[in-house]
Write a protein that binds this DNA or RNA. Structure first.
Length: 465
RNA sequence: GGCGUCGUGGCCAAGUGGUAAGGCAAGGGUCUGCAAAACCCUCAUCACGGGUUCAAAUCCCGUCGACGCCUCCA
């Protein structure tokens, strides 16, 4: 039985879908105005793992991830660059999709955009006004009336009274209550805008997600996800809008990932301590980023530094060792050892599911993979042949795949590889002549080229390091 | 100040009542011409102080500390 921690109840609950066997999941995507960073990668990877595991468990998953392509920051950036805002955002949407692909994140089932959801957003706002949950102001803004929602604050555990104290109204706003938030913002001169019953303007930040949810997944969904920095106000406001509009419970489970930590604090655009996904991938593989995430708890802060990354890199290498082929000269496992391997495979499958069923305990799942890895490697050392390793390696690859690990080796150009092969051939000859000096020279040379070699009875193998 | 998450070996980190998974690092072995990889062995009583219980890292109270949100943010 799968259990998921629900931010709404602050408890781990049994997972039950609205429709049997089907999961409707909405994850808040990014605002597209510059390069995405590794914190975004963490979030994308977390929900990719959740999606993959749900599918592994037999669910049909509709996974929606939106793009916020209409926003103050986009408009500012576009002005700086002298570019059309929608053109700018289109560029970064393509860019982010590319980043996700590089990270082996499965494409979402749908990627709605604010700019393409305008009619529904306007309809949504009109509906809220009709029901008394929102009101247009004279300046052309439309605000959500928080006092009209008795449940307001239940996701973030806040009470309206507690929040009143620090809240204040910005200049130019015409709110009844400082905590009311904009559903629709009147256009400033020269800004990109859309026609509406309240004049030219654009949507507020929160309404877009409510509208896109409705468009893609309907009135009620199973899982709503995002970073835990979105709990308030974004998700709180989404709940208020959606539930006031439909009169139904919006999302059954609220799932939030923790923040990636760089130097003891959250990595974020506003703090400026950013490492972009592209910068990261120029140095390390996507598996390393994923391993870093897998090694921890998705809800907890994730330590991102050279030490944790180096360890993650070694972890990936260790897992890869599982897939090394049997020795061609293997004599075969005896019955006892073969049965030991079989049992290890079976318990790995069981333990993997048990770990992941417990609120996606990926650290536990990874430990299962390490244990299976050890069993396979031991079997190989004990003389298992290719046939005997096959099943265990297949299961291993399948489980690693559920976590989204590729375990692929790096590749070089064919010329580089030809050069490496030639050097290794030369070294093999030197070794046959017991010319250890020359042999070691070549090994050093290869190392400088980024090649690690391993000698065995069956010959020399190599890989890019 | 309010709300929330959390504090496990040198590092990352599982475990939420019955005497501490896994990985990295480190040390010792096997293998190897030497390496590398793999395999074997060694390495913690769970921030602190009380309490509940036959039994607590795990429940309760308090203290200290960290992080997140309360303004844009994955």
């Amino acid at each position: 039985m799968l259990k998921i921690y629900n931010t709404l109840s602050r408890k781990t609950e049994e997972f039950q879908t609205l429709d049997p066997g089907k999961v409707r999941m909405y994850v808040c995507g990014v605002t597209v105005y510059n390069d995405a960073h590794v914190g975004h990668a963490m979030s994308a990877i977390v929900f990719d793992i959740i999606r993959r595991y749900l599918e592994y468990r037999g669910y049909e998953v509709k996974h929606v991830m939106n793009y916020t392509d209409v926003d103050d920051k986009i408009i500012n950036r576009a002005n700086q660059l002298g570019e059309d805002p929608l053109q700018l955002s289109a560029r970064y949407i393509a860019d982010y999709a590319n980043d996700l692909k590089s990270l082996n994140v499965l494409p979402a089932t749908a990627n709605p955009q604010v700019s393409k959801t305008m009619p529904l957003i306007i309809q949504f706002v009109e509906g809220l006004i009709e029901k008394g949950h929102a009101y247009p102001a004279e300046n052309g803004d439309v605000y959500f009336r928080v006092n009209s929602d008795d449940d307001y604050g239940r996701l973030s555990g806040r009470k309206l009274e507690d929040m009143q104290a620090g809240a204040r109204i910005e200049i130019g706003e015409q709110k009844e209550n400082p905590l009311d938030f904009a559903l629709w913002k009147a256009a400033k001169p020269g800004e990109i805008s859309w026609d509406s019953p309240w004049g030219k303007g654009r949507p507020g930040w929160h309404i877009e997600c409510s509208a896109m949810n409705l468009a893609e997944l309907g009135e009620q969904i199973d899982i709503h996800g995002g970073g835990n920095d979105l709990i308030f106000p974004h998700h709180e406001n989404e709940i208020a809008q959606s539930e006031c509009y439909t009169g139904k419970e919006f999302s059954r489970y609220w799932v939030h990932n923790g923040m990636l930590q760089l130097g003891g604090e959250k990595m974020s655009k506003s703090l400026g301590n950013i490492i972009s996904i592209k910068e990261f991938l120029a140095q390390r593989s996507s598996d390393v980023m994923r391993m870093l995430v897998l090694n921890g708890t998705y809800r907890a802060p994730l330590m991102f530094n050279d030490d944790t990354l180096d360890a993650a890199e070694r972890n990936v290498e260790r897992l890869k060792s599982t897939l090394k082929p049997a020795s061609p000269s293997a004599s075969g496992l005896n019955a006892g050892n073969a049965s030991t391997l079989d049992m290890a495979v079976e318990s790995a499958k069981t333990n993997f599911t048990e770990a992941m069923d417990n609120d996606f305990n990926t650290a536990g799942a990874i430990a299962v993979l390490f244990e299976l890895s050890k069993s396979v490697n031991t079997a190989r050392d004990n003389g298992a042949n290719a046939d005997q390793l096959q099943h265990a390696q297949d299961v291993f690859k399948q489980l690693a795949g559920v976590l989204g690990l590729t375990l692929e080796e790096k590749k070089g150009s064919s010329e580089q590889e030809a050069q490496v092969e030639a050097l290794i051939a030369e070294r093999t000859e030197a070794r046959q002549q017991k010319n250890w000096k020359r042999s070691d020279e070549i090994r050093d040379q290869l190392k400088e080229m980024g090649v690690t070699i391993e000698d065995s009875k069956d010959g020399t193998t190599w890989k890019w390091s």
